[in-house]
Each structure stands twice: as structure tokens, then as C-alpha cells.
Design a protein around this nucleic acid. Sequence first.
DNA 1: AACAGCACCTGTAGGC
DNA 2: TGCCTACAGGTGCTGT
Length: 266
Amino acid sequence: MPELPEVETVVRELVDIENKKIKKVQVFNVSSVEMQAKAFVKKLVGKKVLKVGRRGKYVLLYLVDDDIVTVHFRMTGKLVFHLENRDLNYLRVQFDFSDGAHLYFVDIRKFGRIKFWNSNEDILPGLGIEPFNPQQILRALKQFSSKREIKKVLLDQSLLAGIGNIYADEVLFLSGIHPLTPFDQLEEIHMKELSKQIPRVLNKAINRMGTTLSDYRTTKNIGGENQNYLKVYGQKDRPCTKCKRKIEKVVIGGRSSHFCPNCQPF
DNA sequence: AACAGCACCTGTAGGC
DNA sequence: TGCCTACAGGTGCTGT
């Protein structure tokens, strides 16, 4: 799942577990939790989930006593309220609540991670700002310095938290910036455009409940709609929506990058 | 310090 | 049908 809009969609549905007490936790794949499974279970059982939130691509579960649990889906993780047959083989962690509700952490590739943080810990150190305020984004971009390609910079979670491969490509297309452009060669107008487009792209995707390409599903195990509105991601060889030129695909930092050679000149 | 490369896993799609 | 390779919404470690 993965990027900010998908995580935000899930978090909004997770209000259903707020104020519920965790009655039982079962860890079926030890590497899914960043702690000895036994200790992890002990930390959670009997605790109430006061609130659910999000930072970047992380789901946050605020527990009593100010302890926090973070969930990162990486590539294929998801949290669902009901376990379907097709997910049976990929159930990694199960949470049972005292009112009879369940929450299942399902993850085909086992990259996802669930972490317990004590109340005195500084959670998610080094994570960048939430990318919704254009002025704040512009400020962050202006004080950032790098010779790296803009595509790589957008994927850097320590600058802006939550942008992934799909939305980075979409943002660059709408901003008219070639993904290989060195960050330190961006002009003021480019920075302003990025600051404007980043929140727009993310908010639109949130309103469409995220982008479902293969694995991402909401807690109710249904997909989002944003995949039907992508301008460049996954659109290789298809005509650009603005100029009809063929969308191209290159590899940058090991990630596929889609762009229109006409609308995003190098 | 920054960056490339690879590791972590499993499934799927496409070529032959 | 079957085998093989490439690739997938992400990060984190290691070596240069």
C-alpha cells in the first residue's frame, strides 16, 4: 500500500477501533514486529487504543499511558477488519478486541513492520514534514540542498513524509518538471509549482480513497479509485493527456519513473 | 557525507 | 503447459 493517501484512507476507517481494549495479540510472523514477539504481546494486551493517527506512511495507534504503536505497510501490508480466504496464508499479526472486534495485519511480502514505542521515546526520528501546507513545503524545499535528481529528493522521507513512487511521478508531471532534473538546478517557479501540486495530488488521491494497483485495500478490503486518474504512472507508451506524446519510462534510483518528454523537458 | 547496490519476500506477467 | 526472468505503492544496511 503504501503511500500517504492510502495510509490516510485506512487511518480514517480505523476510528472504529478507537476506545477499544486489546484483549489478545497473536504474532504469526516474528519479523513483522520489531521486538521479541512475546514482549510485544505483553506490551499490548490489556491496553486501550485511545486514538488512531498518521505520520507520513505510518499508522499511529495511541495507547493509554502515552505508549504508541506504529504500523508501516511497506509494499503489500494492509490492515483489515475481516479475514478473507485469499488472505489466510498472509496473516502476520492478529489483534482481538474485548468487544469481539478484530484487526488483521495481512502482508504477502512480509516487508511491513509494526513497532511499539514507550512513552518516553521520540517516535519516528528524522521523518520530514507533512506535505499539505504549500508555504511550509516551499520553505522546506528552499532550505534543502542537494545535487540529486528531483525524483529522488521527492522520495526522501526525511524532507517530505509520505510521497512515494506513484505520487512523485504524478507531481512532477503536473509541475512540468523532468524527473532527472538536479534539485539544485530547480528554479523558484519550479519550487512554487511543486509546493502547490504536492498537496493537490495527495488530497485528490485521498478523496478517491487511494490508488489500487494490485495489493492495496482499505480496512474493508476494497480498493481505491485513484488508479483511474493517473496521468503518467504506469502509462508508458500511452498518449500524454496534455499533448498526446507518448509517456516514457526510465529507471531512477532503481525505481521506475514515468514522464512526458514534451511537457517535462530536461 | 553521500550514494549505489543489494537485501528483505512473494506473486504475477511476459517471453520462449 | 512449464520454465525463466523481470518487476512491483518501500526502506534499511553495507561498502565505497
